[in-house]
Design a binder for these strands. Structure first.
Lengths: 198, 198
DNA sequence: TCACTATCTGAAGAAAGCTTCAGGTTTACA
DNA sequence: TGTAAACCTGAAGCTTTCTTCAGATAGTGA
């Protein structure tokens, strides 16, 4: 593992190169040599830090997803005890903002994520997201406790699914703002419906 | 292109073999020889019907998505003029049912679909879905016309995103039934909120 | 400055995959 | 039944890619 500063830079540039190559030629044609070239190092160097190509992709993907999920968790913790409408607004806004900041990266990493379906990386990340949301929802009396589990699944998948679809469209910023507003309307309406239903 | 009956069978079994191989070894290790073997034909035969591996995957994916989308379109057309709640119920139920019927196929094809991002296949399919939903929504006076465009995007991405997430979890049938109920609650609440908002 | 460690290089071995094609088999139909 | 078209075979050429490793370079601490 890297200890000197230059090797830390190296690892960093390999990560970035991976994204760049993905952007330019797609995952099908992403090769170790291409990544190394783009990073300005030799292949051998790459193999000093990752046992193989898969491991590289895995690391890049995991880091990306984890960082994103941490933002969601932060927003959830920060909204504990708030009104339902505020909860929804906070989490939706935080997620969209975070996603916007790493837009291209996100988009291009969709392409490699299915490779790790077996491994369950996506499932683990999704679980973290759902749990954070569930904890937040439990902090309000408005949602019936027996609904929380499922409501958080709906919340999570609606949020991520919608944003993914909108981003995949190559949507302009204005559209994302509209998506944000509509997501807030939808999720608030949903949670309200759940609480008045019983 | 196939004209005799046996060659139609051949093409059919190549399609099925593609799915099977995807299920067993994943897209990364899907090779032309493996597919041919699984289909019980020789590689050469495969190349009689598809110019290359990509074309094979594309065809299989496109066929799958198109069939799915046709079910959505059918449900939308069949719900024109109905109450909002009925629209939602019909479309959600139709989509989930259709998806359930081709569950494994769906799951495994997520893995190859990002390869055709450039091509825009997914975008075209999504567009068809959104347009069908938009046409349906326009048939009721309850939704403000200026909201229809975006509401159909929300509808589509919520529906597909949620179902994808739930299926990816390897959810049991009971969970899908719950997802169906909650999706109906959510989308109905959303559309209702849209119509009362203005 | 010296010696030891960390880091980097890139040619080349080895494996794997895509695609072709010359020749064989089956079917249609006159 | 004979022949042309349709269909199938699978070994082998060719390319691409992964990964290794012996040797070079750069940093670090004494």
């Amino acid at each position: 593992m890297p200890v000197q500063e230059r090797s830390i830079d190296t690892v960093q540039s390999i990560h970035e190169a991976t994204i760049q190559v993905l952007l330019q030629v797609g995952s099908e044609k992403l090769t170790t040599v291409r990544v190394a070239e783009r990073a300005g190092v030799s292949v051998g160097t790459m193999y000093q830090y990752y046992p193989n190509k898969q491991a590289l992709l895995y690391t890049v993907l995991e880091e990306h997803l984890t960082a994103l999920m941490e933002e969601v968790e932060r927003a959830c913790r920060g909204s504990a005890g708030a009104e339902v409408a505020a909860m929804v607004e906070n989490v939706v806004s935080a997620f969209i903002q975070a996603k916007l900041r790493v837009r291209q990266k996100s988009l291009v990493l969709y392409e490699v994520s299915p490779q790790f379906r077996q491994d369950g990386l996506m499932k683990r990340i999704a679980k973290r997201g759902r749990q954070a949301i569930a904890a937040m929802l439990r902090s309000t009396k408005a949602i019936p406790p027996e609904e929380v589990e499922f409501a958080s699944l709906m919340f999570y998948s609606t949020l991520t699914g919608t944003v993914a679809t909108v981003l995949a469209k190559g949507a302009p910023a204005s559209m994302l703002e509209a998506a944000r507003r509509h997501l807030i309307v939808m999720l608030t309406a949903y949670l309200t419906a759940l609480s008045t239903e019983s």
